[in-house]
Amino acid sequence: MSLIRATGLRKTFGDFVAVDGIDVEVAAGESFGFLGPNGAGKTSTMRMIGATSPVSGGELTVFGMDPASHASQIKARLGVVPQTDALDEELRVRENLLVYGRYFGLTREQVRARTGPLLEFAQLTEKSDAVVESLSGGMKRRLTIARALINEPSLLLLDEPTTGLDPQARHVLWDRLFRLKRDGVTLVLTTHYMDEAEQLCDRLVVMDHGRIVAEGSPRSLIAQHASREVLELRFDVADHAERVEEVAGIAERVEVLADRLLLYVHDGDGALETVAARGVHPLSALVRRASLEDVFLRLTGRSLIE
């Protein structure tokens, strides 16, 4: 059964088109991602799915229901982690969970019984009586996720769950999200980090300017739109375009970035040898596997993170 089904979904703000006719289907138990740069329309899409933003055009059903007429019923089964934490700063950590559960009509006993395990899950047991203001960014994020789980949602919407966190905090969060996925929770997340998308998503769409420009699993997208490996070459020049000619013919495709050349090749080390054999000597060279960043560059001609 598909939990989310969108066809030709649009969102406009006045004359401005934020989401421009997207088709998306998310099945139960799946982990689905929206990958895209700033302003791509990810948040706008998530808010329509969360029934807090009216649909401007096209069709959308969530749990088979129309958000326009069944907002409360949809929200009752959703967990929402917004892009910026909106915790209740006038309440303590534990109270944030207690009170939020009451908004879902849970009894005090139910809420109390769920609070302990959720604090544990978010690694905040020691902080349960702390004021929210005193938490670090990573703690606040985990509390927001714990809060979103108080109603035991079958679908969790996460808008940039790890933006602004340090690498360690991100890995902690990824681990928590993995556990939810294993428990059968459907995850829908937005991100502009390709490593995050590769880690967490079974399937994703790449969005740009309100449209979907590609869709598939991280592996299949890379296979389809990039090569197996990438050879990065840095030269001591102001404009890397000057050096493109010297590597011509070595790669299936060459991308010129501000500070390096990207050569899309099957065998990176082999390509590097060929480069050296031609007498071309870059300042530095790096062979890596192709990533979603390369897919995005290929599809839009721009980097994901400006």
Partner: peptide, 13 residues
Amino acid sequence: SKLYRSVLSTPLR
């Protein structure tokens, strides 16, 4: 505080 924003993502109208 954006309280109402988060309240509106629960069943409250």
